[in-house]
Computed example of a mutant assay.
Amino acid sequence: MAVFTEVSEREAGELVHRLQLGELRELRGIQGGIENTNYFLTTEQDGARQEYVLTLFERLTAEQLPFYLYLMKHLARHGIPVPDPHALAGSAGKDEEHGQLLHRVAGKPAAVVDRLRGASVLDPGPAHCAAVGAMLARMHLAARDYPRHQPNLRGLAWWNETVPVVLPHTTPEQAALLRSELAFQNHVAEGSLYAALPRGPVHADLFRDNVMFEDGRLTGFFDFYFAGVDTWLFDIAVCLNDWCVDLSAGAHDQARAAAFLDAYGGVRPLAAAERRLLPAMLRAGALRFWISRLWDFHLPREAALLQPHDPSHFERVLRQRVAHPPLA
């Protein structure tokens, strides 16, 4: 969540007024992340202070953004703890009962959502992983009737487009792994097992820093701006590759993975095709983030606050997943 676009207190305050959220008291840029501009907003209304997050979208378009914002609203209405987007006052109507959730600030499309309580747990244990697994399954089921459709924009088609762009920045050994793994994933995606995988809206980026806990209790999932319709198994794999690996070596952590999968399966049991393709999808999740981190690291954009992630971490995870495929 870097700051690419500077927002003045006047601009932020005007939006807060249009959303009827009170008076702006503080505006603070958020450091971390690489996609959007984010600020914490503190407002005051009737003597009470509230916290929100203002996001300016740097890459996503006004045509793409309603999928994410209305998905968050849909999930919030179904009891999933996610940041609830705020609509322009008086904008609800028969075409959109939730009102206008997409706004404009500093010339960029923008949204304001509730700030979740708690903090991210960066050294999770099995209990944290179980909580995430169970909530992810609830989220998948809650989104089954979400009416909008948009593909995972960082899915297989994007991998095929982006690998040739990052190859010049890799060593011969890395390039060989990227090419071979991409070929493997294209082969998997053409098979009947892959076609049988259950699908629906997925978060697609549910890392440790995108989940909040407070007093040991999971208080929310956030940062849905990589979401899209994909296989639920891909979402599971992305989580396992972050929540259930050793960060220094990229190795699989069986205890945490078992806790995650048991809790997920207690809410939504995995289908036979999902169990068989889990090792391949773990490789897919590692490949996706290795490609994107190579892209962000070697082809960065300017930002006031920007810390691109180290691409080598997901190279290690991918090599571990290829050499030591875990059992579902």
Rank of each mutant, 00 (worst) to 15 (best):
47 G>W: 08
14 E>I: 05
326 P>I: 08
208 R>K: 10
271 A>P: 00
276 R>W: 14
178 L>C: 10
70 Y>S: 01
116 L>P: 01
67 F>L: 06
15 L>E: 04
250 G>I: 03
34 I>E: 12
221 F>C: 10
277 L>N: 12
131 A>G: 10
223 D>V: 03
249 A>M: 11
298 H>F: 15
166 V>S: 02
11 E>H: 08
322 V>C: 11
276 R>V: 15
125 G>Y: 04
225 Y>D: 12
54 L>M: 08
81 P>L: 06
128 H>L: 06
276 R>C: 13
65 L>S: 14
30 I>S: 04
223 D>L: 03
300 P>W: 01
114 D>R: 13
55 T>E: 01
146 Y>S: 01
257 A>V: 11
251 A>W: 04
327 L>G: 11
68 Y>E: 15
88 L>R: 14
197 L>H: 11
203 H>A: 08
185 Q>T: 10
205 D>Y: 01
175 A>V: 00
266 G>P: 06
249 A>H: 14
253 D>P: 02
225 Y>V: 14
84 D>P: 02
94 K>W: 10
41 L>Q: 07
151 P>H: 14
14 E>D: 12
280 A>F: 06
143 A>S: 06
20 Q>A: 15
125 G>F: 06
301 R>D: 02
84 D>R: 10
123 D>E: 11
268 R>Y: 11
198 P>N: 12
48 A>E: 11
108 K>Q: 14
16 V>D: 00
7 V>C: 08
23 E>R: 13
39 Y>T: 08
89 A>S: 09
114 D>L: 13
84 D>E: 11
195 A>F: 02
164 P>E: 09
258 A>K: 12
244 C>H: 05
211 V>W: 07
66 P>T: 05
57 F>R: 10
83 P>D: 11
238 V>S: 01
124 P>H: 13
130 A>F: 03
278 L>Q: 07
212 M>G: 00
122 L>R: 15
296 D>I: 00
18 R>A: 04
80 I>C: 01
251 A>E: 12
160 N>P: 02
294 L>M: 15
11 E>C: 03
164 P>H: 05
21 L>I: 15
76 A>W: 12
319 R>C: 10
297 F>G: 04
251 A>H: 14
229 V>A: 08
77 R>P: 00
25 R>N: 00
245 V>C: 10
79 G>P: 00
188 V>S: 07
221 F>S: 06
13 G>R: 07
50 Q>I: 14
4 F>L: 05
183 A>C: 14
5 T>W: 01
76 A>Y: 11
31 Q>F: 12
